[in-house]
Design a protein around this nucleic acid. Structure first.
Lengths: 209, 209, 209, 209
DNA sequence: TATGAATGAGTCTTCATTCAT
DNA sequence: GATGAATGAAGACTCATTCAT
């Protein structure tokens, strides 16, 4: 009954994105090694051979898949004006909340454990981490703290270590709530998480004397 | 002292530990899926068939391997007297430093990414996390904070979220320094890490007014 | 002279030769099965689809490729006047030398092992050998010997076997020097080969009594 | 009804020969690239995996298969006392006839075209040819001629070229009669071939004046 | 006529698991 | 209990061929 259309259509421009989107889902669901190219192809609505027109190997597809989605997050960061002054509590809360919105997404929950799982086994991933991720996130935040220390606004600490400790608080919530799927077991409001992170980061847990 | 010893000796009691120790190394080096039973057998000094006398499958071996090593960490915690009072800065620094010593070990660096990588794909791992790790570590620390809040020593925050944020700082350093092998790229003294974590956790990054 | 020329031009007449010339190179370099239609297309400066406009399949292309180049050799033979009398030693040496020039060429070195390799698997090749090569070369040469025997110039032997034995001497040098690429390991002057072949063929290796 | 025996039996000693024998048949029937490991396994009565217990790859299996069968022939040569004097016609005929018996066998007909077809593409084959085959056959025979020349029994010619020309006569009959399957089209008695080869090799085709 | 994106069957190779010894 | 030969089910990747453009 379907009017006879072509069996397939050429879409050389869309194919890569289409395949990468499907790949993230399949890789996230199964993990890199468990995922099959057949499953990715099926999810992308193409055949296995088509994937190899655009990616040279399963590993290449994996790396590019993570790159695209990690870069989507990296592209967000400038919007948070990390270059500016240390903000006041209230505005820091808002920024943190927006950051959590951006980070605690399904795609991030998919990409992050894949990254952790494979970074030791796929050299290109570690290279990307060291050469791109680390400077863009950790070092950039450390720079903010550095300037704050010079201005006397921030305690004298190692800025890179400090930045990483702060990042650690974010990472933990992504990992546990999203990846380990604790959302149902320890439900948490994003507002409460943001509030806690900012309070600790700025003032620590100790009650004011 | 017999000139011709047997090729192998029966060691039914020691075999499981022997295999598990080898398994951690091989799994850590290769990841769960990449690791082969042959490689584990070779590392354990037995043959493939022998493993199946003690473990019903590769997954079973993996779960038991992680269980043993994760429990080794969990067993450490009581020694840190988390049940007690909120310690003063100096003694907190010492405890934190000792905790880092215990956590930033090769075995932890081996077990942690394996856990993160496979928790989504091996239900028994998530079960172990939710039923053992979460109560023993996150909830226990939350309990400490809870008591501190009641005593007016700690700010009024969600104790579970607070505990997890603090844990996040530890995790991040294990992941990055050990797993991502940043030790050479961003070398950090454990003392400096401990100092930073305690300072932030207790007082935050803001300079005293 | 138009500034924007078309990407391709219609050349239906030249295409087959163009493709066949490229095909010989690629098939020779890789062998029939290892050679890909993509590689042939690239070498011919067209695309894969175009080949199928002129050849119905890879096997068809292969058969036609060998046919053309084998015929090029067959076409040479009449020039050597095999129909004539048994020549004297000196003129036989010259003819043999010219024959070697014609046979120990790159194209012959390309076609011959392809033929040997695939004759068992591609019926059309064996058919071509039996129906064309054998009559044109082996039987024709046998005929020369036959006449020589009748004239009492040649020893009484089976003419077909005799012809094939002589052909075998030529083949061996093509195979070893060209195909097995022994040119550097056992370098041989074509003159010396011609001399040896003629001497053996006419007089044998035994020293005159 | 069959009394329940084991599904399979261990035969680690016989397996390699068993597989190699099957491999020669399958490779000869199909050619290296067309032959599948599945077909070899089936022919050997084992499963694919078993082949890989004994051979590291298809290419390795191929090389070892040719090596074994080629060596079977090489091992025959010493029996022909090539080291001795140049024999008289009659005894040369007998030796040649025996050599043809040894060379024009099914296994030789299987191995030879495989060798010719793949020597360009599998470096190990060319290495074996240059380092083993060439010295054992061509150079050894050249040595016989060399001594004959010194003794004045053989014409002054290049001994290596001479040896190769003689070998060429043998090869041609193996290739054409066996590989191209001309046995039915140009049937030849082995005695007649031996007679012709010896006559030409010793005395040439020209009738005695 | 020419293109080259897309197909999909085919193959080598790996490896967890079984089982004869 | 221990071995390791053998199994057999996958799975990554290739490539001749087709067909939408």
């Amino acid at each position: 009954m379907t009017p006879k259309g072509p069996k397939w259509t050429r879409q050389p421009d869309r194919r890569p994105q289409q395949i990468i989107a499907a790949a993230l889902d399949v890789f996230a669901l199964k993990g890199f090694r468990r995922a099959t190219m057949d499953a990715v192809a099926r999810a992308a609505g193409v055949t296995k051979g088509t994937i190899y027109l655009y990616f040279s190997s399963k590993e290449d597809l994996f790396i590019q898949t993570l790159r695209v989605h990690v870069e989507q997050v990296a592209d967000l960061l400038p919007a948070f004006q990390l270059e500016g002054e240390i903000p006041a509590d209230d505005s820091a809360r808002m920024v943190t909340r927006k950051l959590l919105d951006a980070l605690m997404t399904p795609n991030m929950a998919k990409a992050m454990p894949l990254f952790v799982a494979e970074v030791k086994h796929i050299p290109a991933l570690r290279k990307a981490y060291v050469e791109e991720w680390l400077p863009q996130v950790n070092f950039r935040l450390a720079e903010v703290f550095s300037r704050g220390m010079e201005a006397g606004l921030i305690k004298q600490l190692d800025p890179v270590i400090t930045a990483r400790a702060i990042i650690g608080m974010f990472s933990e919530f992504i990992l546990t709530q999203q990846v380990f799927e604790l959302k149902d077991i320890t439900p948490m409001e994003l507002d409460a998480i943001a509030d806690t992170i900012v309070t600790i980061a700025f003032h620590g847990v100790l009650a004011a004397r």
